[in-house]
C-alpha cells in the first residue's frame, strides 16, 4: 500500500509570527521554522498503519520554499521512505486553488492508495485543502478523523460532527484528514537520522507537474490589504486584597457581561 502524507514547514506558534506588510507573505526568517505538528501526527498515523500492512510505503509530499528542505528531512528520519518537495519561486503566495492543483498533480504522479493530511495547518488554518484535493483526484474523503483503522483496500474512522460521533468508512483509494486527537509523532532515533541521509528527495516545480502557475483563466483569491492590528493594551490590573472577586463582579456588571 502506498500512503502519501502531506506535510509542511510553518512558523513555530510558540514564537511571535509576522507577516510582511508589503507583500502580505509570511516572514519566513522571523521565527523558527518547524514541521507543522498536525502533519507530524499524520505521518505517525501513516507509519504505524504501514507497519501493519506488508509491502507498504510512506511518501511525504510538501510544497514550500527550498529552504524548507532541512526541516522536511526530519520526516525521513522519522521513517518516511521518500520526500517529494515541490519548490518553485512562482508558487510563492499561491492561493488555495493553485496549491490544490499543484498538490493534486504531484499526488497523481506519485500514485497512491491513501493520502493523509492534517485537518488544519497552524499557519493558514484553512482546512479546505483536503476536500479540494479529494474532489480533484476524484476519490472519497473522510475529514477530521479522531481515529482510523486501515486495512488493505478499506478504512473506517470516527469523527465528531453535529453534536455527535460519526463512524465513517470508505474503500481505497481515498483521502483522510486527521485531528490532533491522533497520537503524537515518534522522535527520530539515531539510526533513523543516519538512514535519512541516504533516502531519496525529489525536487519538482509547477511546470514539471504540468501546472501553469501564471494562468489567469481561473479565478484566484488575492490579498488586497494587510495591516497589523494595534496590539491589545492592558486594562485595569488590581492586586487582590480580599475583595478582588467583588471588584471583578462589579466590572462585569457595569459592562453588562453578567
Amino acid at each position: 500500500m502506498k500512503i502519501i502524507v502531506l506535510m509542511k514547514e510553518v512558523p513555530d506558534t510558540y514564537g511571535e509570527r509576522t507577516l510582511n506588510l508589503e507583500t502580505g507573505l509570511a516572514e519566513r526568517g522571523a521565527t523558527e521554522a518547524v514541521l507543522d505538528e498536525i502533519g507530524e501526527r499524520a505521518l505517525e498515523a501513516a507509519l504505524s498503519s504501514a507497519e501493519k500492512i506488508d509491502g507498504s510505503e510512506v511518501i511525504v509530499l510538501s510544497m514550500g520554499p527550498a529552504t524548507a528542505a532541512a526541516t522536511l528531512r526530519r520526516a525521513l528520519a522519522m521513517g518516511a521512505a521518500k520526500l517529494v518537495h515541490i519548490s518553485d519561486e512562482k508558487l510563492s503566495g499561491a492561493d488555495l486553488g493553485l496549491t490544490a492543483d499543484v498538490l493534486a498533480a504531484a499526488i497523481r504522479r506519485i500514485g497512491f492508495d491513501l493520502v493523509i493530511t492534517g485537518n488544519l495547518s497552524t499557519d493558514g488554518s484553512g482546512g479546505v485543502l483536503p476536500a479540494m484535493l479529494a474532489e480533484i483526484l476524484g476519490v472519497p474523503h473522510a475529514s477530521t478523523l479522531n481515529s482510523v483503522e486501515i486495512s488493505a483496500g478499506r478504512l473506517e474512522g470516527t469523527r465528531e460532527a453535529n453534536g455527535g460521533v460519526m463512524t465513517v468508512a470508505t474503500e481505497l483509494p481515498a483521502l483522510i484528514s486527521i485531528t490532533d486527537r491522533f497520537p503524537a509523532a515518534r522522535f527520530p532515533n539515531f539510526k533513523g537520522i543516519m538512514a535519512a541521509k541516504k533516502k531519496p528527495v525529489e525536487m519538482l516545480t509547477a511546470a514539471e507537474l504540468g501546472v501553469d502557475s501564471d494562468a489567469l483563466d481561473n479565478p484566484r483569491s488575492i490579498m488586497i490589504s494587510v495591516s497589523e492590528k494595534p496590539p491589545r493594551s492592558a486594562g485595569t490590573k488590581i492586586v487582590d486584597e480580599g475583595d478582588g472577586g467583588k471588584k471583578l463582579a462589579e466590572f462585569l456588571v457595569q459592562n453588562r457581561l453578567a
Binding site: 486553488g97 485537518n119 482546512g127 485543502l129 480533484i136 475529514s143 460532527a161
Partner: peptide, 24 residues
Amino acid sequence: SNSADGRDVAGRFAARTRSAVAVD
C-alpha cells in the same frame, strides 16, 4: 460556516467549480 463539515463542502464545491476560496 467554517465548521468541519462546512469546510468540506466549501472545498469540494470550490475545486469543482474552480471558484476562488477565502477561508475563516
